[in-house]
């Protein structure tokens, strides 16, 4: 965040990372290693997807970043300041939704937000009601603001939790599974909200188990499995790491497979009228020409781009939802 040094000179951020951890480790009292030597770097202004199967240490990491859990070893810096030591300086600039919303059921949605806002000693009580009202409006809860929170549906609770993260202009938003419990329309609204916030310069740290969601909104991503960071970087680079597959649609699958092998394609798979293979290291136009010269009737020829899911499976060697 380039302007940070101008407005808050005491922060002195190293580089422009909003979150930076070095060797961050958490071992719970039972001896279970939840997070193992995590080196995570979240660039300023990014929408950062934090991926991993259940039980991979995502939530423990988020709790350490928010100062709720003391790391066993290693350091975590958020907005350039060490956590949990600088909690009181850092957290007013951070909006968080951690492991789903938590509300006082006997209070109205509006009163819940008023209470969370009152807990922040840097929040101006004179603007409290206005800020709560605009946060409610932002998540589409204005009409239900006066209703008791225990009467809220899961989706409404999720929205109220999001509103709690938006009570102040934030420099960092940490959203743990923000679309949980929302219907497709609600998910789309949250996605556009995240994009809107990001375009305002807010860094968004988003954990999700929905890969296509990460792919749609995130500029960067990190993948965790079994407490370790497997990879991190720009989303485009991550899926580029996995090569796409060459797909040939043809009625002459046998001939096509033979020609593709001759052309140096590996892992040739025939399925109905499709032949797929790892593209060979040569101009694909020549491969196509070779097919046609061999009398293969080609209906379709192209490379299917690797999705983030392919990247994920390649990295973790497993499906996304199976662990845990």
């Amino acid at each position: 965040m380039g302007d940070a040094s101008a407005t808050e000179p005491e922060q002195g951020e190293p580089g422009d990372s909003v979150i930076a951890t070095r060797g961050l480790t958490k071992r719970y009292r039972g001896g279970q290693l939840a997070v193992d030597g995590l080196d995570l770097t979240v660039p300023a202004g990014s929408v950062f997807g934090f991926l991993g199967p259940n039980g991979s240490g995502k939530t423990t990491t988020i709790r350490m970043l928010m100062g709720l859990i003391e790391p066993t070893s290693g350091t975590a810096r958020v907005l350039g300041r060490p956590m949990p030591r600088a909690s009181r300086a850092v957290l007013p600039h951070v909006g968080a939704l951690i492991e789903g919303p938590a509300l006082y059921g006997f209070l109205s949605g509006r009163d819940n937000l008023l209470r969370y806002d009152a807990a922040d000693p840097t929040a101006d009580p004179r603007t409290r009601r206005t800020r709560v009202a605009s946060a409610l409006e932002r998540v589409g809860l204005t009409a239900a603001g006066g209703k008791k929170a225990k009467a809220y549906s899961l989706g409404m609770k999720q929205r109220l939790g999001l509103a709690g993260a938006l009570l102040q202009p934030r420099r960092l938003l940490v959203l743990d599974e923000p679309t949980n419990g929302l219907d497709p329309q609600g998910m789309r609204e949250i996605r556009s909200l995240v994009r809107e916030l990001a375009s305002d310069g807010t860094t968004v740290f988003l954990s999700s188990h929905l890969l296509d969601e990460i792919e749609q909104v995130c500029t960067h991503a990190a993948v965790m499995a079994q407490g370790r960071l497997i990879t991190q970087g720009a989303v485009a680079d991550l899926s580029a790491g996995v090569r796409g597959r060459l797909v040939v649609t043809t009625p002459d699958t046998g001939d096509a497979a033979r020609v593709l092998k001759e052309q140096g394609a590996a892992d040739v798979v025939v399925a109905e009228d499709r032949v797929t293979a790892e593209p060979p290291e040569r101009d694909l136009a020549e491969v196509n020409a070779a097919l046609v010269t061999a009398g293969v009737r080609v209906r379709g020829f192209g490379v299917e781009r690797a999705s983030l899911e392919d990247a994920f499976v390649a990295l973790t060697g497993e499906g996304f939802d199976v662990a845990g």
Partner: peptide, 23 residues
Amino acid sequence: SQAEAATDAVTTGPAAGAVRAPR
């Protein structure tokens, strides 16, 4: 750029630029 976007947010947001200290 992201830096410009951030600066915009600071100048347009009413309280974003101000250092928020507990009173």
